[in-house]
Design a protein around this nucleic acid. Structure first.
Lengths: 187, 187
DNA sequence: GTCCATGATGACACGAGGTGACATCACGAG
DNA sequence: CTCGTGATGTCACCTCGTGTCATCATGGAC
């Protein structure tokens, strides 16, 4: 590997998060972020595709986790239930990160560019879900539809989960929304 | 108003579309787009927030149209059916624009930044739907969920509609997906 | 122990995106 | 005719993001 701290990306993320919180996203320069991590601008862009990307480091593995979880679900389960269960398993691992998610969410909300990037992150999640569904035999079009709905549920669940003093679990909020979706369709 | 052609934005859009098709998005400069429309770079940014935005000029009024359509639906109709019907009405107006949508979609697919921006456009649509639902008495959380699902259906319907030689109507594809979504939930 | 391949980082130059401030110029109202 | 208005042009400027090459510590080959 090399002698350099193996956590350059993490240091950059911490520096960015702190600066964005105090000065705002637009008012913060990539050079400042890099300096805060003891690195240079050029190195920042070796770890992140662009300035916004530093806010989504933690989201990179989520699609992989969900895909993995989904593969572990009994093959006899219906597509819809499989997605619900797979997502539930993945959600359990996120519960301890509540504080971190809340900080990042607060920043994301302040900038349209970050909202956009968050939507892309959500789409990557939907893509992973759809891929896993196709692998277990679901029709491609159905998989895309179901994955999109699932990603929407996930997003709204996160929103509820992060509400100050909501006291609710991510898994719980997720299950609730899933139930609600079914009711809305039956009505 | 002034003597200047009132269609500066349209000229810029046409110039951009043409250049993106021949050279690609990344290889095209805002200065080139502006020159193609007989304008300057500065003027481009008076009409569009950024370089990507020029591809979404036509999407600006869609949320308004959908919101309008949704308000016209009988108040006794269920939320889910209201959204489906409102979207169907709006879709009818888009049918003649098939060619235009296809051109833009082909370009959007080539660039992640444009895909992102397209997701934001879709979110604006969802926001408008949710707002209209809340106005007719739907619970806010249910409205957000339903609007997100509707936007997902719309997106996938557009995708099907634009498939070469699909021969399908946008309204038809939309209805089909809506039906499919219900079936997937019941399974 | 020495030498070398490797991989992360630094240094530098540069094009392009995007904005603020001020000038310009044609039109319509009076 | 004059003046206000609104869209555009001009210029300066900063930041983003990338290509390119140099640097330097590490681990393995010998």
């Amino acid at each position: 590997m090399g002698r350099w701290s193996p956590d350059a990306a993490l240091r950059l993320e911490a520096s960015a998060l702190s600066l964005f919180e105090t000065q705002g996203f637009a008012e913060t320069t990539v050079a400042q972020i890099a300096a805060g991590a003891g690195l240079t601008t050029r190195t920042f862009f070796r770890h992140f595709a662009d300035k916004r990307d530093v806010m989504f480091l933690r989201d990179r593995e989520l699609p992989l986790v969900v895909e993995e979880s989904l593969r572990g679900v009994d093959a006899a389960t219906s597509s819809a239930d499989a997605v619900r269960l797979g997502l539930e398993i993945a959600c359990r691992g996120l519960e301890p990160l509540h504080e971190d998610f809340a900080r990042r969410r607060a920043i994301i909300r302040t900038e349209q560019g970050l909202v956009e990037r968050n939507l892309l992150s959500r789409r990557h999640l939907a893509g992973a879900i759809a891929a896993a569904l196709v692998d277990r035999g679901t029709d491609a079009r159905d998989a895309a539809l179901l994955a999109d709905v699932a990603a929407a549920c996930f997003e709204l669940a996160v929103e509820t989960w992060l509400e100050p003093r909501s006291g609710r679990t991510l898994v719980d909020a997720q299950a609730d929304l899933w139930r609600r979706a079914r009711e809305l369709f039956d009505a």
